[in-house]
Design a protein around this nucleic acid. Sequence first.
DNA 1: CTGTTAGCGCCTTCAT
DNA 2: ATGAAGGCGCTAACAG
Lengths: 341, 341
Amino acid sequence: MGERANRPTVKEVALRAGVSPMTVSRTLSGGVNVKPDVQKRVMDAVAELGYHRNENARSIRPGHSSGLIGVAITNIANPYYSTFALGVEEEAALTGRRILLGNTSEDAAREAGLVGDFLGRRVDGLIVVPAGTDSGHLAQSQAQGVPVVLASRRVDGLAADSVVLADEEGAYDGATALIDAGHTRIGYLGNSLAIFTGERRYNGFARAHEEHGLQIDPTLVATNQQAVEQARDATRALLQGDNPPTAIFCANNRNAIGALKEISAQINSGTRPVDEFPELMSFDDFELAELSPVPISVIDHDPRELGRIAARLLLDRLDGGQRDADTREVELPVSLRMHLR
Amino acid sequence: MGERANRPTVKEVALRAGVSPMTVSRTLSGGVNVKPDVQKRVMDAVAELGYHRNENARSIRPGHSSGLIGVAITNIANPYYSTFALGVEEEAALTGRRILLGNTSEDAAREAGLVGDFLGRRVDGLIVVPAGTDSGHLAQSQAQGVPVVLASRRVDGLAADSVVLADEEGAYDGATALIDAGHTRIGYLGNSLAIFTGERRYNGFARAHEEHGLQIDPTLVATNQQAVEQARDATRALLQGDNPPTAIFCANNRNAIGALKEISAQINSGTRPVDEFPELMSFDDFELAELSPVPISVIDHDPRELGRIAARLLLDRLDGGQRDADTREVELPVSLRMHLR
DNA sequence: CTGTTAGCGCCTTCAT
DNA sequence: ATGAAGGCGCTAACAG
């Protein structure tokens, strides 16, 4: 058992079927100009040998492509992004393409490495949730005729198809809803303002304040939590202040979950009554949000659909004759699901 | 079709650097026997052109491999499996390999298609959470020298490396803990008994009853919920009986989450006091489990580690001279985190 | 040190 | 309806 690579080639199939490699090739690509009985002999040989065409060999020939789409996301384990990846995978599979998936861990250098690797593997296109502001590697991809679609975040100075959320508007609406409900001290938990979504969501949050004549208390703003534990720590700090917020705006699901964990732990330890804890507004829905002990409103959107759209933008360019079309920038609306005290 | 691929090849780099393609190749693979100044000229040309070696072309040469690992999982969007995929990706990246990720949706035919496609792309190996009991396509992969690692589930009659959880034992321990706490009517929510984990976990649940002289009430057993909504429906049915269970054993995170959603909804609608609802035991931890309004105990384990181990089993075979080693079957222990009334 | 040759698996083109 | 030749990009093996 356990042989070293004994993968059959066209030649071996041809030998077994008593034909030339060309006849095998023709049979496999539709069978035009191959007699039915010969086709059958070929297909039998294929089945017996378990032959699969070497796609890598095919892809180096002129006019052929790899059928691979490179997908670089910042955090595979975040359910939001894995659902996004599912959307991409589904849509890609409809065209017989597969996805090469890589994790960047929000690290621009790692992203550049991944993209270089993807290019070496001759991907047909790239779908990227960009981790940084440096777009050299992405521009290079485009320059080589490999289209790039940005998802969730855009990159300054890079003309690429993109699909992002209505971050500013959604955050504005969410914050406005809190203000309309009477909140004047609203905490903010988010990822870095240097990140596309972080900046846009904060801007929406800030604009809601401005337009309602409210000042943001800077001690209530924490914008560097990338992971749940960091968000939890930031929440603890927020709640410890002597004038804590009456509501917390969470700019993404990691921050909302961190806030929820801390609040729920404090409630369980019974330090004060439940209704003295801030209520929450989360940009991103997430599983079990409805178990929150404090009211939580959600700025909702569908990551799977985001993935599907990203894939379609790319596939349109690859298959739909849109290779040289103008850049398309899609902004997906979000919907506010209110749940207040 | 406007194939506008503008990807540079060794030849173009060679031309620009004023050397032969071989010198480019040598430089790129370490630079042995290439004068330093020539190397520099080559590397400059590489940078200027944005050249990346065509890995597909390299991979068709004798002795070379694709550096790709095919990963087929049943549900990318399930956080458990996406975290698993992250573990695989991390470990693969350490050896410069990338993962081709496919979703089977628990469909054996789709899995076979995926595997065939992966073989066509000349993956170095396969990591599969098998969706069915048919192993023809996996055996074929092995026969062609492409090792297969099974994760989470094994397949009867297939001698392949595998890493699974201590399903039976974990379920036994969990159920025993409930019984020891005085429960005699325990509901069961799980996936199909035809699935490896479904059968093993149910067996552990059943053995705990037997060994404690308890009968399982078959009306409290529901074993066909694959998704959260189905689990929720099954939970509703369980709670409606005139002699409902005092505890529910959930065989995986989808079922636990469905149960939690239904219980929490009923609690919120105030039909009866919280402590008249069953407490829960979940095989699988999941995010925000601690928000449960009823006590929930967890049979815990680490999907990322499962992914890492699966990858290492494969990589040992590929790189570690273990290509023809005996089949290794790893069973990961689980740990019980109790939380009862 | 550097270049030439040849061939990996496949399929377009050109013969038959 | 079938086969032979040639070349895609790359790099061992073999000159020089």
